[in-house]
Design a binder for these strands. Structure first.
Lengths: 232, 232
DNA sequence: CGCATTTTTGATATAGGTCAAGAGGCGTGG
DNA sequence: CCACGCCTCTTGACCTATATCAAAAATGCG
């Protein structure tokens, strides 16, 4: 494992929430121009490279983040020191919500791909959400989405035989339009599915042999989504 | 499996939140007399018997619930029809929070023991929390607690060997003072830990033989917490 | 007391873990 | 530009934990 040093965030430029391409899905989607004028601090953006660490467990933090593109893993460490990935944060999803209730982050957040982020000062969110019904509701929906997602993670990615779990992961990572999918290290796959790197590797190899997936490049596959859904 | 019919809730009497014995931990803990006067509807209480169904998935609902005593299981059904228990709700914990973001419940909620509940009209919570900073924060903390708990469920109860998972479950259910624990059916234990009923039964038998737990009555055990924590 | 259900126990099968070796990529430095 | 070395990935052989199938024992209920 290469050692990654937390990037001293190159937060460049102001985000432009009103004209954001993710606007319809993002946390601030319901806010209007008037609301943005009330912000005391700018919304900043940055880009992370694979392996970069955004924050670590117990880091005191003042920002929530939205992923604009790319993929972030949220990692927990088990008593025996092994890592377990408890969530993948992808486009239009929010991380760091724990700061609304606590002062520090609960995970280690590491980029799996090149990732663009926006960051929001948690104080502003807190302040605005107390009187802005739209943001208030957006927060409730965000919490509910995360909780619901956590349960899906449990039932789909951590239950049943390895092939079924791997299929669920692939389906989750596959682009709905092109049926293409970018994978990452076998070790990371293992700590998502609670299987060993060897089993992860074997399962992927078997899927290749059976024609369920076809390599298009390094960790880049074409995925037969219909066939994967049919795996018992 | 006996068929359980949703009880037509015998909601008797008004709850008295200001003098509630759970007050320091409950959702409404921060509210003052003035706030309660603003409630348009009373807070009601009820008692459920083991096997009673509080609500089902997709039921439209207007209430959140707090468990005062007892234990509720929240169940999801897997594609293959088998059940998976995704959360246990015990004393002072809240369920039904999904109604703050959606109109219907996401689980089936079934009592495992005799259980006392309070119910809160979700509209009132929604309305009050938009301007009451204390309740607003209590909600954020409740969401965060549930999410954090969902991750613990994943890492402690769904990862690792069956003995370790069973030990974690027992420790979770054991009363800190008396080291006593009330268990439930092997089938339910299985669908918490993602193991078969047979493995659940065998594991418990082995714990008994090793003196890690001692039967005190029907599904009632004394638990050697120190020894259980030491299981690898 | 007798039947139905749940729990326990046993025998066997198998998926996945473990340990170990080899193959393939990729960056670094000559 | 090539060669070496370091990773990660793959594959193989073996072993163990848990699932599966089946039957007996225990428990609770009418």
């Amino acid at each position: 494992m290469p050692i990654s040093i937390p990037v001293d965030h190159a937060w460049r430029g102001k985000g432009n929430c009103l004209n954001c391409s993710l606007r319809s899905q993002a946390l601030f989607s319901g806010l209007i121009e008037e609301d943005f004028k009330q912000l005391h601090q700018p919304i900043d953006q940055m880009v992370m490279q694979p392996g970069d660490v955004l924050y670590r467990k117990n880091d005191t933090g003042r920002f929530l983040f939205t992923v604009r593109s790319g993929l972030i893993k949220l990692v927990k460490y088990l008593p025996d020191g092994r890592q377990r990935i408890v969530r993948l944060v992808c486009s239009a999803e929010v991380m760091g919500m724990e700061l609304l209730a606590e002062e520090s982050y609960r995970h280690e957040a590491i980029a799996l791909q090149q990732t663009e982020l926006c960051r929001y000062p948690v104080d502003e969110i807190d302040r605005l959400s107390l009187h802005n019904p739209v943001l208030h509701r957006a927060l409730m929906e965000e919490w509910e989405k995360m909780l619901s997602e956590a349960e899906a993670w449990l039932t789909q990615l951590s239950t049943g035989p390895a092939k079924r779990r791997m299929a669920s992961l692939l389906l989750r990572l596959t682009d709905g339009i092109t049926s293409e999918c970018y994978l990452f290290s076998r070790e990371d796959i293992g700590s998502i599915l609670s299987i060993t790197t060897e089993t992860a590797s074997r399962t992927i190899s078997e899927f290749k042999r059976q024609g369920l997936i076809k390599a298009l490049g390094h960790n880049h596959y074409y995925v037969d989504t219909v066939a994967l859904k049919a795996i018992p």
